[in-house]
Simulated scan of single mutants.
Amino acid sequence: MKKNNTKYTSVSRLALTVGFLSAVFSGNALAAGELHLYNWSNYFPPSLLELYEKETGTKVSVDNYASEDDLLAKLQAGGGGYDIVFPGTSTLGIMVEKGMLENIAVNKMENFDKLLGSFKTIAGDENRDFSAPYMWGTTGFSYDPASVPGNKLEESWKELFEPKAELKGNIAMLNEMSDVWNAAAYYTGIDKCTESPEEAQKILDLLLAQKPDVKLYSSEGTIDRMIAGEVPVHMQWNGAAHRVKAKKPDVVYVYPKEGTSFWVDNMAIPKDAPNMEEAKKFINWMMRPDVAAEASNYTGYSNAVKGSGEFLKEELKADPAVNTPESYGERLRAFKTCSPKSKDLREKVWTKLKS
């Protein structure tokens, strides 16, 4: 995917420069080393990689995965040699439960107090022993008014699960089990942590009925795909929608009325990370307000660090896709820790859908 060459705002550039000079002249610059990150594509600003190397002498590289299933599979197979990974809440819980992550006592790091209170805990890592928040956002869908019937779609998952005739075969879904399952559960009114095989079957029936109308399932390239007009409607994360709107201002991001998933992506260190101490320093550095803001300015997602707002681009603050309107607050659905039985049903539904 093409990288976003977002330029610093003047305030952000100044703050980052001050941070660099402060580190150098205080003698706190870290020893040279290397770090290997494993993250979603197009989800980490190259500017921060360069800045960290300037401040510390440590070279940082990034490899990308296409789904969190791929992330789990690779780490479970013992591959990669990565120092920092970026799991979402459900994957984070699985990793903690399976002993895949190092306890790095994030709650005792110097910059932990800079986090907003609601992000100092998370399901599956309640004490923040294993993880720090990276970005947070929502999962809804985007559409191009010029390419849909009547130039407007209803604020409902119905537009994806029962698309209008003109849109059949021309909508795109994310290739993420939890996002697709949750949306279908919200639309059918079924608890997303259901343990009922009958209710799981209803969700499967809905997804199988929708499948002929789906042009593709993909979590990569969603920004470029919408900008190029390859599909008029795309299940999408809000930060990606924001970046689409930078090129196509009329594109609309929808918070479906039946429920919109609210999620947090996190930074964590695998058990066998080759550069453990350097990785801890990097995670602490990422909780610095100016650094967190630069990540938000690039990704189009909100961060969890107090004081970062003054470094954010104005267009980020003004976009309802990123700055959720208060009137939509009741539509947000937080992550829930589901039982093994419920997770098993979800996985069986996903396997049948993708077979």
Score class of each variant (00 low, 15 high):
residue 77 A to W: 08
residue 102 E to M: 12
residue 85 V to M: 07
residue 98 K to R: 12
residue 99 G to R: 03
residue 106 V to F: 11
residue 113 D to P: 06
residue 76 Q to P: 00
residue 97 E to H: 06
residue 82 Y to Q: 03
residue 134 Y to R: 07
residue 73 A to C: 06
residue 85 V to E: 04
residue 109 M to C: 11
residue 113 D to Q: 14
residue 141 F to V: 05
residue 115 L to S: 07
residue 107 N to H: 14
residue 100 M to R: 01
residue 84 I to E: 05
residue 137 G to N: 02
residue 100 M to N: 00
residue 131 S to N: 05
residue 126 E to S: 13
residue 122 I to Y: 00
residue 99 G to H: 01
residue 97 E to G: 04
residue 128 R to W: 06
residue 73 A to R: 14
residue 134 Y to S: 12
residue 120 K to R: 15
residue 120 K to H: 08
residue 124 G to E: 06
residue 116 L to P: 01
residue 82 Y to T: 05
residue 75 L to H: 11
residue 87 P to E: 02
residue 71 L to F: 05
residue 113 D to R: 13
residue 86 F to N: 04
residue 69 D to E: 15
residue 106 V to M: 11
residue 133 P to G: 09
residue 119 F to K: 08
residue 85 V to G: 04
residue 116 L to S: 13
residue 105 A to D: 15
residue 140 G to T: 02
residue 103 N to M: 08
residue 114 K to V: 11
residue 91 T to R: 02
residue 133 P to D: 10
residue 109 M to F: 14
residue 101 L to Q: 03
residue 105 A to C: 13
residue 132 A to P: 07
residue 78 G to L: 09
residue 100 M to I: 08
residue 138 T to D: 05
residue 104 I to L: 09
residue 122 I to H: 00
residue 118 S to M: 13
residue 135 M to I: 15
residue 95 M to C: 03
residue 74 K to M: 14
residue 144 D to I: 04
residue 137 G to Y: 03
residue 93 G to V: 05
residue 74 K to S: 14
residue 130 F to T: 01
residue 91 T to P: 00
residue 125 D to K: 10
residue 84 I to P: 02
residue 92 L to T: 01
residue 83 D to R: 03
residue 138 T to Y: 07
residue 136 W to Q: 12
residue 106 V to Q: 10
residue 125 D to E: 11
residue 131 S to K: 05
residue 141 F to W: 04
residue 115 L to G: 06
residue 130 F to C: 02
residue 116 L to Q: 15
residue 130 F to K: 01
residue 139 T to S: 10
residue 94 I to S: 02
residue 130 F to S: 00
residue 121 T to P: 00
residue 109 M to V: 10
residue 107 N to L: 08
residue 125 D to S: 11
residue 131 S to H: 06
residue 120 K to W: 09
residue 133 P to Q: 09
residue 137 G to K: 04
residue 102 E to Y: 07
residue 128 R to G: 07
residue 72 L to M: 13
residue 137 G to E: 04
residue 100 M to W: 04
residue 133 P to H: 10
residue 90 S to G: 07
residue 130 F to E: 01
residue 71 L to W: 04
residue 68 E to R: 07
residue 115 L to P: 07
residue 130 F to R: 01
residue 102 E to C: 10
residue 107 N to G: 11
residue 87 P to F: 03
residue 111 N to P: 13
residue 132 A to E: 08
residue 86 F to T: 09
residue 87 P to N: 02
residue 135 M to C: 12
residue 124 G to S: 08
residue 116 L to E: 15
residue 110 E to H: 15
residue 129 D to Q: 14
residue 81 G to M: 05
residue 127 N to T: 14
residue 141 F to D: 02
residue 84 I to L: 11
residue 116 L to C: 13
residue 81 G to L: 03
residue 138 T to C: 11
residue 121 T to F: 07
residue 82 Y to A: 07
residue 90 S to V: 11
residue 87 P to L: 04
residue 112 F to H: 14
residue 87 P to Q: 04
residue 80 G to R: 06
residue 68 E to I: 09
residue 136 W to M: 10
residue 120 K to V: 10
residue 117 G to V: 12
residue 122 I to C: 06
residue 76 Q to F: 13
residue 83 D to N: 09
residue 145 P to M: 09
residue 120 K to F: 08
residue 111 N to V: 13
residue 76 Q to K: 15
residue 111 N to Q: 14
residue 137 G to D: 01
residue 135 M to S: 10
residue 71 L to S: 04
residue 108 K to C: 12
residue 72 L to S: 10
residue 128 R to Y: 08
residue 120 K to G: 08
residue 85 V to Q: 04
residue 75 L to N: 10
residue 98 K to S: 06
residue 90 S to L: 09
residue 122 I to E: 10
residue 71 L to P: 00
